[in-house]
Design a protein around this nucleic acid. Structure first.
Length: 442
RNA sequence: GACUCCAUCGUCUAACGGCUAGGACAUCAGGUUCUCAUCCUGGAAAUCGGGGUUCGAUUCCCCGUGGAGUCACCA
C-alpha cells in the first residue's frame, strides 16, 4: 500500500455547495493532508441543461474563502467528450455496451447501454465493511445519450481511472451506485479504488439536508457571522471523533489534519444543529486577534454605527461587551438594531425611566449619587477603568445596599433595563462623559 | 414496493466482550450579581424490542421494529 493517495472532489455546477458538500470536501481534504496525498477538483458538468458557469465561480469562491485548496484541477468533463467517446467505443467494440432504443430527446439518436453481466458485486467500504449488491437489479443501464453525450456513471469512472484516484470518499447516497461503477471499471480494465461512504448530514427532520432546512450554503453561514474554522470544527465532529476516549471538542484545521483518520468516522447519519455550532463559533471568535475580531465586527455594523465604532471607544465595546455576549457576528447587527449601542454614543433619554432602586426615595438616591460623583471624580483619568471603579465603590455600595447605588448608576449611564454593569459602562464612556451624565441628577 | 445502509441521553458522541454507561451542546436548579451576559457548582437525561453465543453483552450473531438512502437518457 505505498501507492500515492489521491482523492477527488467532484461538484456539479448546478447550484452552490451546501454544507454536506463542504463536509465531503473537508473529509477528503483532511484525509489527503494527513496522508501526504493530493486532492483533485473536477466539475461534473455533463448535464448541459442544469450546469451553469456562474455556479463554478461561486463554488470556487466558496472554497477559496474557506481556505480549502486543492492540488490540481479544476477540470471540466464537458471538455473531455472525446475521451469519453473513446471509452464508449472501446466498450462497444468489446461488447460491453451497445446502442439501444431511440433516445427520448427526439434527436433520433440511439442511447448507449452498458451490457450488464448481472453479477453480484462485493466491495469493501472503509467505513462500513463489506457490502454486496446484486447488480442485475440495475439492468442494462444507460451510460450515454449518444457517443458525444456521455452521462454520469461513465464519466466518473473514466476520470477516476485516468487521474488514478486511490480513495473515493463521498456521501452514503452513493453506496448503491458503487457497484455499477465497479462494473464499468472492470469493463474498462481499470483498477478499483478504495471506497469510503460518509454518513449523511440530515436536517432536524432526519432527512437528507436540502434547501428547506434553512441556511445550508456557505454564503449564508458567512452572512450569519460564522467563522470557517468553526464550521470545520463542527462539521468534522459530525461523524468523526478523535477516538481513544479523548474528550477534546475544539480542533483547529491543523489539528484536524493531524488527527484525522477514516477509522474513526462513524456510520450513522448526523443531525445538523445550530446550537452546538454557535457554541463552537463563540470559542473560535474568542481566539481571534483584536484586529481580526474588529474586522469582522465592522462587516456587520451599519455604516453609521461603523463610524462610531471606529474609535478607541469602539475597541473597548468590542473587548468589554461584545466578546462575552456574541456567539456569531450577525448578533452584533441585531444588537445595534435593538439600540444596545446607542447609549455609548449619545446620552440616553431618561424620561419615564425610573432611576431609583426599588423603594428608594428621591432624597436617598440623590444623596447617593452625589457621593458617587465625588468618589468618581477623585479617580484619575488614566485609572478610570472598570476594575478600579469597582474596587473603589464595592465596599461603600455594600454598606448602602448595592442596588441603591448600582441601579441608579447603571440606569443613568444606559437608560436601559438590561445592560452591562455600570463599571464597564463607565470605563467605556470614560471619566468626563460619565460624570457629565451623572451631573444632571445631583 | 425492491435493494442497500443505519440504530447509546433532546442533539453530537465515548466506552480491548468486564467498575455506578463518560464528555460536549441544549435544558433545569443553586451560587456570584442592581439588571442582562459571563463565570462556578450541582441535577435530570440514553444503550429500540425479542431471542441466542458467553461466566459476563452497548459491544458478536439472528429475527423483528423504526429511520434513512437508492432505484433517471441528474449528478
Amino acid at each position: 500500500m505505498n501507492k500515492k493517495i489521491i482523492v477527488r472532489f467532484p461538484p456539479s455546477p448546478t447550484g452552490n455547495l451546501h454544507i454536506g458538500n463542504i463536509r465531503s470536501f473537508l473529509f477528503n481534504y483532511l484525509f489527503a493532508k494527513k496522508n501526504n496525498g493530493e486532492i483533485y477538483l473536477r466539475f461534473e458538468d455533463t448535464d448541459k441543461e442544469r450546469s451553469e458557469k456562474k455556479y463554478e465561480e461561486i463554488i470556487l469562491n466558496t472554497l477559496k474563502t474557506l481556505g480549502l485548496d486543492f492540488d490540481f484541477g479544476p477540470t471540466w468533463q464537458s471538455q473531455r467528450i472525446e475521451i469519453y467517446q473513446k471509452a464508449l467505443e472501446k466498450l462497444i467494440e468489446n461488447k460491453n455496451a451497445y446502442f439501444a432504443e431511440e433516445s427520448q430527446d427526439g434527436s433520433g439518436e440511439k442511447v448507449i447501454r452498458f451490457k450488464n453481466p448481472n453479477k453480484k458485486i462485493k466491495f469493501n467500504d472503509l467505513i462500513r465493511g463489506e457490502i454486496e449488491i446484486d447488480t442485475s437489479d440495475f439492468g442494462d443501464f444507460v451510460i450515454a445519450r449518444s457517443l458525444e453525450n456521455p452521462i454520469y456513471h461513465l464519466t466518473v469512472v473514466v476520470d477516476d481511472i485516468e487521474s488514478e484516484i486511490s480513495h473515493i470518499i463521498r456521501g452514503e447516497d452513493h453506496i448503491t451506485s458503487t457497484p455499477r461503477q465497479i462494473l464499468l471499471i472492470e469493463a474498462l480494465g481499470g483498477e478499483i479504488p478504495e471506497y469510503a461512504h460518509l454518513p449523511l448530514l440530515v436536517g432536524s427532520d432526519g432527512k437528507k439536508l436540502g434547501k428547506r432546512h434553512g441556511a445550508v450554503s456557505w454564503p449564508e453561514f458567512e452572512k450569519d457571522g460564522y467563522l470557517p474554522e468553526s464550521l470545520f470544527n463542527y462539521l468534522a465532529l459530525l461523524g468523526w471523533n478523535p477516538g481513544g476516549g479523548e474528550e477534546q471538542e475544539f480542533f483547529s484545521k491543523e489539528e484536524l489534519m493531524e488527527k484525522f483518520s477514516i477509522e474513526n468516522i462513524n456510520k450513522s447519519p448526523a443531525k445538523f444543529s445550530y446550537e452546538k455550532l454557535d457554541s463552537i463559533n463563540k470559542y473560535w471568535m474568542s481566539r481571534l486577534s483584536d484586529e481580526d475580531y474588529k474586522k469582522n465586527v465592522f462587516n456587520f455594523l451599519s455604516e453609521k454605527m461603523l463610524e462610531n465604532f471606529n474609535s478607541p471607544k469602539g475597541q473597548k465595546i468590542i473587548s468589554l461587551v461584545l466578546k462575552e455576549r456574541v456567539s456569531k457576528f450577525s448578533e452584533i447587527l441585531e444588537m445595534e438594531k435593538a439600540g444596545e449601542f446607542d447609549y455609548f454614543f449619545q446620552k440616553p433619554n431618561l424620561e419615564n425611566i425610573k432611576i431609583n432602586f426599588k423603594d428608594d426615595g428621591d432624597e436617598k438616591t440623590k444623596k447617593i449619587l452625589k457621593e458617587l460623583y465625588e468618589k468618581l471624580e477623585e479617580i484619575s483619568e488614566e485609572n478610570f477603568n472598570a476594575k478600579k471603579i469597582k474596587e473603589i465603590l464595592w465596599d461603600w455600595s455594600g454598606e448602602l445596599g448595592r442596588g441603591s447605588v448600582l441601579h441608579p448608576f447603571r440606569t443613568i449611564l444606559s437608560g436601559a433595563e438590561k445592560s452591562p454593569d455600570p463599571f464597564v459602562l463607565a470605563e467605556i464612556l470614560e471619566k468626563e462623559e460619565t460624570l457629565s451624565r451623572l451631573k444632571n441628577y445631583l
